[in-house]
Design a protein around this nucleic acid. Sequence first.
DNA 1: ATGTTTCGTCTACAATTGTCAACGTAAATG
DNA 2: CATTTACGTTGACAATTGTAGACGAAACAT
Lengths: 153, 153
Amino acid sequence: MNPEKVSEITPSEWEVMRIIWTKGPSHSRELIDLIQRKRDWTESTIKTLLGRLVKKGLLETNKVERKFVYSTTVGELDAMNLTSQQLFDHLCAMKKGQTLVNLIVHTNLTKNDVQKLLTVLQKKEQTAPDTIACDCLPNDEDCTTDNCECEEK
Amino acid sequence: MNPEKVSEITPSEWEVMRIIWTKGPSHSRELIDLIQRKRDWTESTIKTLLGRLVKKGLLETNKVERKFVYSTTVGELDAMNLTSQQLFDHLCAMKKGQTLVNLIVHTNLTKNDVQKLLTVLQKKEQTAPDTIACDCLPNDEDCTTDNCECEEK
DNA sequence: ATGTTTCGTCTACAATTGTCAACGTAAATG
DNA sequence: CATTTACGTTGACAATTGTAGACGAAACAT
């Protein structure tokens, strides 16, 4: 896989990737048609996006009877995991829990998802620490929690 | 608040915001010193970042005896929530659950966090649907799950 | 074989982002 | 008062992103 490159997927490029992840390997024509039903982009724009994704190594092409077939080189789930983790990596350690609560509240989940989440959490419960320090300041500087309104509300 | 603007916080700007969120309202000197202990940025760079954040309305300044004091106009938790939700908004609906599992596994959480998450999930369990459709293709196009390897592995 | 469609590549251009240096002014110091 | 220091503002420049037109070669149609 190409983890570094995954972080460089831009919003527009995600749109393109999602189509190919879902549709499977496809010709540019098919992709352009599909994307144009969601986005008001010209053919040209989509071609550029495809080209950039190939250059980044996130898509690869195979010439099949004259036309290129575009396929992804990363799994969608892998990309989602990497991207979301990366986002979390630059957030205050102290508040990630709250953020997850918020995410879960606002995300539509199946019973199955909920079950899995419950299982993971129950396992985590045992080893969970009582507190987690804020990591927003340089190491040597202490996060005096008076200013740091990191606590719940 | 200024939700639109929150989405425009760039990675470098997050770094700056985190310091101010944690430290509370501060003079530029103090901010520059703190940030330079984490990042190898020149004073100039940090000033630019501060200026841009003020322009975006994410920071505001108050002149106090000659110097400006920078304070945030958005809460850190609000920013974190908005940003993470925004990320989730452009991911495949079908796979968000898996992604949350992954996030939770890799995020350090306190017992308290775990408790809250468990509570929220238990509540969600009742109303959770059995399946959620993939929303990567235009509405009229069906996600034929043969290509769409959206299922668990 | 010749005009037309198709498709990939190249070029372009404005806006944003990461990084800075330089400038002007007000404050502090000698 | 003359000098140095501190700080906010401007301008700058390369790289990335969003968006798209133009070009060239191959494939198809007549």
